[in-house]
Design a protein around this nucleic acid. Sequence first.
DNA 1: GATGTGATGTCAGCAGCTGACATCAAGGGG
DNA 2: CCCCTTGATGTCAGCTGCTGACATCACATC
Lengths: 215, 215
Amino acid sequence: MPMGRWEPNARDRLAQAAMTLFQEHGYDRTTVEEIAARAGLTERTFFRYFTDKKEVLFGGSDALHERIVTTIAGAPQGTAPLDAVATALDAMAPFFKDRREHARARQALLAAHADLRERELIKLASLASAAADTLRKRGVTEPTASLAAEAGIAVFKVAFERWLEDPKEQDLSRHIQLGLDELRAVTASTGPVAPAVAPAAPPQRPTRPARARKP
Amino acid sequence: MPMGRWEPNARDRLAQAAMTLFQEHGYDRTTVEEIAARAGLTERTFFRYFTDKKEVLFGGSDALHERIVTTIAGAPQGTAPLDAVATALDAMAPFFKDRREHARARQALLAAHADLRERELIKLASLASAAADTLRKRGVTEPTASLAAEAGIAVFKVAFERWLEDPKEQDLSRHIQLGLDELRAVTASTGPVAPAVAPAAPPQRPTRPARARKP
DNA sequence: GATGTGATGTCAGCAGCTGACATCAAGGGG
DNA sequence: CCCCTTGATGTCAGCTGCTGACATCACATC
């Protein structure tokens, strides 16, 4: 069997080595040099594959990006913006199917390191921005496109976290649907601005439990 | 006149020196040592005031944080979650009144440096998280609290950007209101999921221009 | 006047990251 | 078969962000 001069999949090896070491010794007590060594490479090479030490944890983000764009672009003409976005969110779910445990481990790292959360947030923001761009190409005008995209990403964030914690282990897809329903419920409610003084309400109802889907 | 051992307002001096140098030479060609020197201090001292080189650009964020929390906490009993958040967003507007030019300069820096955008995003996320916490203390249950908070922050992001670009220079407050209206319009629309095939719609209307406020 | 105390300075050092250049197998003409 | 190019990697030097440990020194307090 032909084996090139170097072991293949350097990138994957680096990513995997990093994940392992981060879990074993923690993120900031793991050195890029150690990661590279474990992958049989050099620090310098690490930085040829990843711009950042952080970036090594964000491999699939390009795929998500593309999936979102093509899904929105491919939505039937006349689809309402938020519905197009909703479809795109749903199209992301398969990427995480069967990777719940991996996602949880990753999330644990993010929870412990603000650096990593920052990176995660900019990735999500970039998804939102791409979604908005694509909506605009479909003729959606400006405040609408950005808001639909941002709202969609907000739903995804919440849904994703709930998916990770859900003891019933329902599909991510399901949580996204619930999130969208809830968003609609939350925004559908009252008028412009609350009155200055409250008319002494009772103990305070929890505001509106998530309503069942399919009215 | 009594003058202490050191010039006062070290923190402010550092922040201002940083802003100036960033604009003159760019963010990454400005060294922390240079900033400190310009403020008559040492690099080491800079890092006593700011955890980060980036952090020097995010001074007011604590004040915003507090304002959001107290505003939401102080909303009349029975106020709908999104309305409470909306009020809080509006309460942030005064912080930026008369600082439009400063905000634009800042935004220009953010636009050029992903590092800084990351920091900005985590600040916003932190605001959202605080808002959600406060809502929860008011009895709002979970998916609702997070979604109202995140949606609110999404509105703020969009409104803020539009405010910076608005040739008519309308109030930030106004843009927030428009954003909220638009969010409601975007979410109020169609049902759960778009049909698989579109019934051949006409040229495609821009989906729904922002409707006037006050139905 | 001795004794803190708080803001600052000094120094040493690591880790992240980069530019410049070297190496070396594989592949492709000539 | 040799040469040359190419691409992935290694080597080295160096800056800058950031931190821990310790020194200083005006000012306040007793």
